[in-house]
Design a protein around this nucleic acid. Structure first.
Lengths: 150, 150
DNA sequence: CCTATATGCTTGCATATGCAAATATATAGG
DNA sequence: CCTATATATTTGCATATGCAAGCATATAGG
């Protein structure tokens, strides 16, 4: 047996890399920005959306969480003024989550933290070419997803 | 501005890919194997350890979770006979988590499920060369980690 | 127009997980 | 040997999250 199933090992390695990254980020995010990594990702999805707003169901799909989680994640972010609510005139069921001005600032700052940590993560032994090749691989892997934050 | 910070985008994409993968796996894992993806990862770490056992603190580090989480994750797995406990004769503080025989079977079955889903994930537009190149990239990224499941 | 079904959101309940305190044991320094 | 400190584990409490039920609104068929 060749003992090589690259899809299997790649999948496992992506899961591990993600856990590693989240562990590195979580401390600095709560301490410096007062939000969790998951909350940051929510803001990021909203930032990349038209009008910086999304229906809760749509946001849930992009974050791979349940609708109830969106309801509960958004609540404290509304309280601290990073998110607001908008209704749809044509469909009263819809309740959009919208980024506030303060949130744009917060997102910029948090992006800088992420960029810094990402820099550490890739600082050794990575050529510009390799970084871009990895980027293309990951983009291909995410091609089926609906989000595409980066 | 070139608008290209590949470490940043790569980091974000890894987080997204991981969420995507976990979402795909979680349903089938609970339904078919009766364990969660995280529980499977715990079993996998133990399988790759010498004597198929690890101290709880060590297991916590490799899974990037707290020690209390290990305590609580292991409890139900002990109840269903997948894990057992062993003490250290020289250090009474240590309480090893050990894989049972039943767990080896369970891990094999779950690995097959993961391999299948990984196959779907990479089935389109990936050459063997590209798969191995991605594998090397991810391995490099994980070089600093202590686990290395794959 | 009315009813049946579908969709979006929220809430109750159960599970998952982290942090800090509590407990037990080990180790170093006197 | 005794004490102070360090380490491993567990437990109490708070937060995070999913599922299913409940509620409001929309849409399709008659």
């Amino acid at each position: 047996m060749t003992m090589l199933d690259t899809p299997y090992t790649n999948t496992l390695r992506i899961l591990q890399a993600s856990d590693e990254i989240k562990a590195r980020l979580s401390g600095e995010f709560s301490a410096v920005h007062g939000i969790s990594v998951n909350e940051f990702l929510m803001l990021l999805h909203l930032e990349s959306a038209p009008k910086h707003r999304l229906a809760r169901v749509e946001l849930a799909k992009r974050l791979h969480v349940s609708a109830s989680t969106v309801t509960r994640m958004a609540a404290p972010l509304e309280k601290i003024g990073l998110l607001a609510r908008e209704i749809d005139e044509r469909d009263a069921r819809l309740s959009f989550v919208v980024l506030t001005e303060a949130a744009h600032t917060k997102v910029s700052e948090a992006k800088a933290t992420l960029a810094k940590q990402a820099g550490y993560l890739f600082q050794d032994r990575w050529s510009e070419d390799e970084l871009e090749q990895l980027s293309r691989f990951l983009q291909r892997l995410l091609a089926g997803s609906l989000s595409t934050l980066a």
